[in-house]
Design a protein around this nucleic acid. Structure first.
Length: 879
DNA sequence: GCAAGGTC
């Protein structure tokens, strides 16, 4: 049995096992228990996945932004790769002595390896029961799970020698709901899963092709765009469009004067708020005429007084978006139900009474909950039950002190009050409306008085103020004290608030409850909008220019209707009315045509960019001479930092996140470009030199990336140790991330650290292992061979032919064995040390200087950093 | 470096 997330699997297993359960901690939890399945004794295993098992991407050949024309992405092959989520809680044991979490010093959280986990746990099973969320994405995950489990199951489960695969349909983790689902297992719905596959493929092809094209096009032309990526997406772009459309309404708004008649009268000393039934007129003379008529009448006659009961309906159940963040925390600590739902109606079997009863002894709501139970629960009206989860409710009673006050408590308080309110009686008011006549014009006044507070007793912020009208009877006359002709001006709407934007996205089906905040965050991070006072979403120059560009070229590109169209197509697949392949092929062709049209008419958008942004030629300051024309290039400091040669019209990418200056006026021996020195910002302030041309040339293009956790120098391109040139044949071209050789280290990894260039070093991210490598080394890796003395893992150091260090060269040529030392304990490990094709198992050569066995047991593992006499840079001076 | 969808 497989559920969607670890906590879910635990809850379901608890309910199904009725307490007889053994749990073991793996990368993902597995719960095992005995029970009965379809009348027979059975052993159950319950485990989970962490969201989607796979994610879709293009094959590696299509990942290059330089070599692949984005138009090819409409035909390019796609693959599904394991999504490799991180295991939760991996940081838990990684705290500084003072108890502060210190991420920088922690290893990266381990990956979950969900495929391997499913294959292992599914081995030999007779029946597979899928407990994923009951929506299309959940259905798709079912099939991802089946791909991994079914081939490993026994063939006994289903008929015809096929394993039995069943789907549980449920919307809440309650005992009755889970048992009902278990007793009514169905088949997984392949059509729904295929619909998700179709959406994934379309989103990928369209989003990536447009993003790469427009990023490349505009970044090569303008210097002050302040955006490293100019992205396009079927959700983020319509989201931006909402913000820009509102901006356009605001700036194009023409204020208009209007006039309105405002008579003043009072009864029994109470002034009346009188409203003109014509509202307002847009002609001053007309307004003045009406005001004159009313003024001449001098009094108002009460025409009618009506009284009716008005009800303010109790609220629907609470749904997701605004409180996701804090709610998530309260959910994981077991105070709230699952906070990610679109439902606002409680499902028919939801135990309302039980949930209210759970709050009976609560210090704040206890009395209210008890009286509610006594007078009877009201079933909420309306709302929608999407079927994914019930509305958000408290799960257990909690006090302010238990939650530590602050936002968590305020949210819990809100959820609890909202829940109680939603099952309370409506609020009842008596509303009075009086109409008046004077000079042929009609006016009205209204007032209201609370009769029964209903749910507003527990949700006081929803109560309406009592404002009664004075007693009035039809036929009565009131004297006018004044008749004002009020002049006003129409005013533009305000910018959208985040809440407005979320509402628009929900209304137009842009994104899901879980992804809506992600899209808003995306357009902030891409610098298309900024969030200003009052959580208002205001588009930036870049955001406005982009949308105006789409509006000029093909307005459908930014309209929500495009997403709606895709959704409509995908619905056909989900309902089994259309073939997935046919729908995808057809829709891909539609978007290919749109893409080609966009590319063909990009000058329309470009003319807008010209008006708002500076061309590269007039941006930046001179830095580094071009190797081709020998003229100074321009350094563009706006994101992404790069160099631009005005003469050759060439853009050269630079490493990001630090500062760049000239390096000793040295010139690259290969191409004549002036070398630069890159300094990483931050406390360490490490630096390395680079040639701006080589940095952009294969195989080193964009290679010297620094400061990326777990991937330091991942694509080669480390400058050589003798000349500061990244493509020199001495450079360290092969490297990576390895397990730490220190046997006492608990799962640390060592990386070749390029920021220490030219003194390459291996650095463990967990223990104190630190080791400097000899010059001219081509690659280094940790082998599976271990030192007999300490168990430390030996290193395989590789010099290319002809680049062996002097002391090793002659030995390598005559094939004689070398002695070496264990990198951890310094003990000689002669048997494993030999030179083969320029390889040597060695950390340091022993011999002429007489550092024999037993000497210098300094230990380079844990604690080595405390040895004041040890200079790691000395290790390889022997060479 | 890219989409959107899960999830932590």
């Amino acid at each position: 049995m497989v559920a969607e997330k670890p906590s879910l699997s635990q809850s379901i297993a608890h309910i199904l096992s009725e307490g007889r359960m053994a749990s073991r901690r793996a990368a993902l939890d597995v719960h095992e228990f005995d029970g009965r399945f379809r009348g027979q004794a059975a052993r159950f295993k319950m485990t989970s996945v962490i969201g989607h098992v796979y994610s879709i991407d293009f094959t590696a050949a299509f990942n290059s932004w330089d070599k692949v024309d984005p138009a090819q992405l409409y035909d390019a092959p796609t693959i599904k790769q394991e999504a490799n989520p991180k295991v939760a809680g991996a940081y838990a044991g990684c705290r500084l002595p003072r108890g502060r979490l210190h991420r920088a010093a922690c290893p990266a959280p381990p990956q979950a390896h969900v495929c391997e986990h499913l294959q292992r746990e599914g081995r030999g099973m007779d029946v597979l029961v899928l407990w994923l969320d009951c929506d299309r994405e959940g259905e798709n995950i079912c099939f991802e799970v089946m791909d991994n489990v079914v081939p490993y199951m026994s063939r006994r489960g289903g008929g015809g020698g096929q394993p039995s695969v069943l789907r549980a349909r449920f919307s809440a983790i309650t005992a009755p709901e889970i048992r009902a689902a278990m007793n009514n297992l169905v088949s997984p719905n392949e059509a729904e899963a295929l619909a998700v596959d179709a959406r994934q493929e379309l989103d990928l092809r369209v989003g990536v092709s447009f993003t790469r094209f427009q990023t490349r096009f505009f970044q090569g032309r303008y210097g002050n765009l302040d955006a490293s990526v100019i992205s396009y997406g079927p959700c983020q772009t319509p989201t931006l469009n909402f913000c820009v459309e509102r901006h356009q309404t605001i700036v194009s708004f023409q204020p208009e004067p209007f006039w309105s008649v405002r008579p003043r009268a009072s009864k029994a000393g109470v002034p009346l708020e009188l409203e003109w039934d014509k509202g307002r007129v847009f002609d001053q003379d007309v307004g003045a005429m009406y005001a004159g008529l009313v003024r001449e009448a001098k009094r108002l006659r009460v025409v009618d007084v009506s009284e009716k009961e008005d009800r303010k309906p109790r609220p629907h159940g609470l749904n997701t978006v605004e409180m996701l963040k804090v709610a998530e925390r309260l959910y994981t600590s077991g105070y709230l139900s699952y906070p990610r739902t679109e439902s606002s109606a409680y499902p028919p079997n939801f135990d309302i009474v039980g949930n209210v009863a759970a709050l009976r002894n609560h210090p704040v709501y206890g009395a209210y909950a008890s009286s509610l139970l006594q007078q009877g629960i009201k079933h909420p009206q309306g709302g929608t039950d999407v079927g994914d989860h019930p509305p958000i409710t408290p799960v257990r009673s909690a006090t302010e002190a238990e939650l530590g006050g602050g936002d968590p408590w305020r949210l819990y308080d809100f959820v609890a009050r909202h829940f109680l309110g939603s099952v309370s009686p409506d609020a009842v008011y008596r509303k009075t409306k009086a109409t008046f006549e004077g000079g042929g014009e009609t006016f009205s006044a209204s007032g209201s008085v609370a009769v029964k507070p209903g749910f507003t007793a527990i949700m006081p912020w929803r109560a309406t103020q009592s404002e009664p009208l004075p007693p009035l009877s039809p036929g009565e006359f009131l004297t006018l004290t004044e008749v004002e002709l009020y002049q006003g001006r129409t005013s533009p709407p305000d910018y959208l608030t985040e809440a407005d934007l979320i509402g628009l996205m929900e209304k137009h089906g842009i994104g899901t409850d879980a992804s809506i905040p992600v899209h808003i965050n995306n357009i902030c991070e891409r610098n298309y909008v900024s969030i200003q006072a009052g959580r208002k979403v205001v588009p930036t120059e870049l955001g406005i220019t982009l949308i105006r560009g789409y509006q000029l070229i093909d307005p459908e590109l930014c309209k929500p209707q495009v997403r709606a169209h895709v959704e409509g197509q995908i619905d056909l697949i989900a309902k089994g009315k259309a073939d997935k392949e046919a729908v995808v092929a057809h829709t891909v062709e539609q978007f290919r045509a749109k893409f080609l049209f966009f590319v063909g008419h990009i000058t329309r958008m470009d003319s807008l960019f010209e008006a708002s942004f500076s061309p590269l030629a007039s941006s930046g300051k001179p830095l580094s001479k071009c190797g081709k024309c020998r003229r100074y290039m321009k350094y563009i400091s706006a994101r992404p930092q790069r160099l631009y040669c005005n003469t050759c019209e060439e853009v050269l990418a630079l490493p990001q996140g630090g500062t760049i200056k000239l390096y000793k006026s040295l010139v690259c021996p290969l191409d004549g470009y002036e070398l630069l020195l890159f300094s990483l910002s931050g406390q360490d302030g490490k630096t390395f030199p680079l040639c701006p041309f080589c940095y952009n040339s294969p195989p080193f293009e964009g290679a010297v990336k620094v400061g990326v956790e777990g991937a330091v120098g991942s694509k080669a391109g480390m400058p050589c140790s003798t000349c500061p040139h990244p493509t020199c044949p001495h450079s360290l071209a092969q490297h990576g991330v390895f397990p730490c050789p220190n046997p006492g280290c608990q799962g640390g990894t060592v990386v070749l650290d390029p920021v220490s260039a030219p003194k390459w070093r291996l650095d463990c991210n967990r223990c104190n292992f630190l080791m400097y490598l000899p010059a001219n080394l081509h690659s280094a890796k940790v082998t599976k061979d271990t030192c007999e003395d300490c168990g430390g893992r030996l290193l395989d150091l590789d010099w290319r032919k002809g680049s062996l260090p002097p002391a090793l060269g002659p030995l390598a040529q005559d094939g004689s064995a070398l002695s070496g030392v264990c990198p951890v304990c310094d003990e000689e490990v002669a048997t494993l040390c030999e030179v083969k094709h320029g390889h040597a198992f060695a950390a340091r050569r022993m011999g002429p200087r007489g550092r024999g066995r037993g000497r210098g047991r300094r230990g380079r593992g844990r604690g080595r950093g405390r040895d004041k006499n040890f200079d790691p840079r000395m290790s390889f001076r022997d060479f």
